[in-house]
Simulated assay, not measured.
Amino acid sequence: MTRTDTARPLHLLNTSGHRVGLALFLVVVVAHWAEHLVQAAQIYILNWPIPEALGLLGLPFPWLVTSEWMHYGYALVMLVGLFLLLPGFTGRARTWWKISLGIQVWHHFEHLLLLVQALAGANLGGGAAPTSLVQLLIPRVELHLLYNALVFAPMVVAMLLHRSPSDAERPAMACGCADRDRVEERG
C-alpha cells in the first residue's frame, strides 16, 4: 500500500465527505452528552445516589459505567475524530477546532491515567477507585460534565464558523460544508 492509498480516505473525509463525517461525529458527541446529562438529572433532580445514577445505557448495562475501558474508548474516539476531521477546517474555524482538539488531548490523558490505574490495581493517592489529576479538585461526575463542555463548546463554534466562512476563508475550503444560502446572500 502506497502513501497515496493510505492518504486517500483522509483526503475524501476532509473534502467531499467532510459534511457527512462531521454529522456522524456530532451524533456520537451528542449521544455521549445525553448520557452525561441523564446521569446528572438522575443525581441532581431525581436525587439518586451516584452509584445508582448510570445514565441511559448504564441502566440496562451497568458494567458500561464502571468500565474504564469504555470511558477510555470514548475519549480515544473523540481524540481520533477531532484529529481526522481537522484538515477540513480553515481560518477561524480551524483555530476553534484546534482548541477543542487540545482540550481533548488533556481529557484523553486523564482517561488514560484512569485506565492505567484500573489495569494496575493501584489508584492515585491510594484511593478506593481510579482518580484523575483534576478529579483531586473536582468530583468525577461534575468533572466529566466540565470536560465535555470544554471540548464541545469550541467544537460547536468551529462548526458554525465552518458552515459560514468569511469571503477570505471560502477559497481555502476543500469541502462543501459552507452554508449555501449564505453564499447566495453574499453573491
Rank of each mutant, 00 (worst) to 15 (best):
M1D: 14
T2P: 13
T2A: 10
D5R: 12
L10S: 12
L12F: 09
N14A: 06
T15Y: 02
G17N: 08
H18P: 04
R19D: 09
G21N: 09
G21Q: 09
A23T: 14
L24I: 13
L26Q: 11
V27G: 11
V27L: 13
V28L: 15
V29I: 13
V30T: 07
A34R: 07
E35L: 01
H36D: 10
Q39V: 06
A41R: 07
A41D: 04
I43A: 00
I45S: 09
W48V: 00
W48M: 05
W48I: 00
P49C: 01
I50N: 02
P51K: 02
A53K: 00
L54H: 02
G55Y: 02
L57K: 04
G58P: 02
P60R: 00
F61R: 04
F61H: 08
P62M: 01
T66R: 08
T66H: 10
S67G: 01
S67M: 01
Y72Q: 11
Y72L: 15
G73F: 04
G73I: 01
G73T: 03
Y74M: 11
L76R: 03
M78L: 14
M78Q: 15
V80P: 03
F83L: 13
L85R: 04
L86R: 15
G91C: 03
R92P: 00
T95H: 14
W96G: 05
G102D: 03
I103K: 03
I103Q: 04
Q104W: 06
Q104I: 05
V105W: 06
H107Y: 13
H107S: 11
E110Y: 00
E110P: 00
L114K: 12
L115R: 03
L115I: 04
V116R: 07
V116E: 08
Q117L: 04
Q117S: 06
A120N: 04
N123L: 07
G125K: 04
G126K: 02
G127W: 12
A129P: 09
T131H: 12
S132E: 07
L133A: 09
L136Y: 06
L137H: 03
P139Y: 03
P139A: 07
V141S: 09
L143I: 03
L145H: 06
A149E: 05
V151T: 12
V151W: 06
V151I: 11
V151H: 06
F152Y: 10
A153M: 11
P154W: 01
V156N: 05
M159T: 13
L161K: 09
L161T: 05
S164F: 08
E169L: 02
R170F: 08
M173Q: 15
A174K: 15
A174I: 09
C177T: 13
A178N: 02
E185Q: 15
G187H: 13
G187V: 14
